[in-house]
Design a binder for these strands. Structure first.
Lengths: 247, 247
DNA sequence: CAAACCCGTTTCACCCTATGAAACCCTGTT
DNA sequence: AACAGGGTTTCATAGGGTGAAACGGGTTTG
């Protein structure tokens, strides 16, 4: 609490309002005010500003707010030519076709992970992965990869974060991460979602720094533990190839 | 200048900073300060706030700012299931396959139009359309559609906008829009870009309100005026079908 | 090797402006 | 009519955003 904040409160609050729209598409003013814990009139002013700049629009029919087109405009420029999510796409599709399962790409953002790219399996029963989703860093194969192979310090920093689940045994988890470093890949079986399993391997750039986790996921009856270990070499090889594509 | 502003200045400025990233991917602090016309230290604080909420990140190598992952997260939820750009995609692909030309979807945003979805022709020579692009509302087939079929008032409002090109003869343009309403579709031949042509038809929702313009575009040697009028019925029918898909 | 320069960071006093309580205005409901 | 539940507007207050200036750390210039 002693932390000197060099941020602008009004802007922080406006961005919190904007971030309401990551879950659910439409919100009324009062709803938003309740969610962010601010007074109606404050939120009203913030929304007017956001609307003015095109970040939100009011649905003419429902009178509620939804995301505006400025966000689309920004996200269009998010994918640059040297963006991993673009240059790695062909290789992701190749791997998808080889294993016929959904392939995702994750990066770590503080104490969370974000799915920055995904290609879906073509099978009827498949893992459906939405790009942009933000997931906890405590469970799942790619979470463990993103922690295990991270630069020194981040592992300790994340594990000691206040948001980290307290019921998770730290020592055992650390041991698990060490095993993953030794094996070169991680698996998860019905860990985060029942019926789902995943294998994940680290992607390093040329200077050996971890940049992303490549993950293959599907229903747990297809992706049995045996099958996952069988797939692992192909995934590791694919991840290695991706590393050479990057700078 | 007498206009009572009910907006928050600090937030406005922060959003202006964010909107710098629609053109060019990377900016230094001083560059941004110059662009938005603010003092360095102000921009520094705003950027710190934006970074804190994940809307921008600092490239570790170049020390410059680029868009952060929160934008990705937001844009993921912009494409909701009832979002036109998603539900209309199959029909757009069908039309693309029928005519073998690039198909785009535009909506009006104030005095501009935004391409919210596009599927490319498979031919070697084809119109390449990027989603999220923002274009003037004064030229192009879909511009004319978005104006001609708009609700009463918006036509006059846009034409009298300060940003409207003054060299455009208003009376003649208005007549042209009336003709388009009568015809039910619009064409443009090398109007905005040399060598490019387009046909566009309006999409109305069930309550008869204009929601988007469906456009077929390609090289002007394939999309001759004759060919465009020949294509028009199919495009109108497709646009009508899309209207029934929407609420 | 200074000096000059550029960029980002920090400090600080001033006074602008964001804030929230309350009142107000709708429209629909009891 | 009275009420409820949304959104809008007003207004006094003090809290906080602001920009000038100074600082620090690089790199280029003399």
């Amino acid at each position: 609490m002693e932390e000197e904040k060099r941020t602008v409160r009004a802007v922080e609050r406006a961005l919190d309002v904007l971030l309401c729209f990551v879950s659910g598409h439409e919100w009324g003013l009062t709803e938003i005010a309740g969610r962010v814990g601010l007074h109606k009139s404050t939120v009203h002013r913030l929304l007017a500003t956001l609307e003015d700049k095109g970040f939100v629009i009011r649905d003419a029919a429902t009178e509620k707010y939804r995301l505006g087109l400025s966000v689309l405009e920004l996200s269009a420029n998010l994918s640059r030519s040297d963006d991993p999510s673009v240059v790695l796409l062909p290789e992701m599709e190749r791997l998808r076709d080889e294993l016929n399962e959904t392939v995702s790409l994750y990066v770590r953002d503080r104490a969370e992970r974000v799915r920055i790219q995904a290609v879906q399996s073509m099978q009827a029963i498949r893992r459906v992965a939405t790009v942009g989703a933000r997931l906890p860093l405590s469970v799942g194969a790619s979470s463990k990869v993103l922690l295990a192979f991270a630069e020194p310090g981040v592992r300790a920093a994340v594990l000691s974060d206040a948001a980290w689940p307290s019921n998770l045994e730290r020592a055992a988890f650390g041991k698990q991460l060490d095993d993953i470093v030794a094996a070169g890949y991680a698996t998860s079986f019905e860990e985060r979602e029942p019926g789902a399993a995943a294998v994940s391997a680290p992607i390093f750039n040329r200077s050996g720094k971890l940049v992303a986790a490549l993950s293959v996921s599907g229903p747990s009856n297809r992706l049995t533990p045996d099958r996952m270990h069988e797939y692992a070499p192909a995934i590791i090889e694919s991840a290695h190839r991706m590393g050479t594509i990057l700078g």
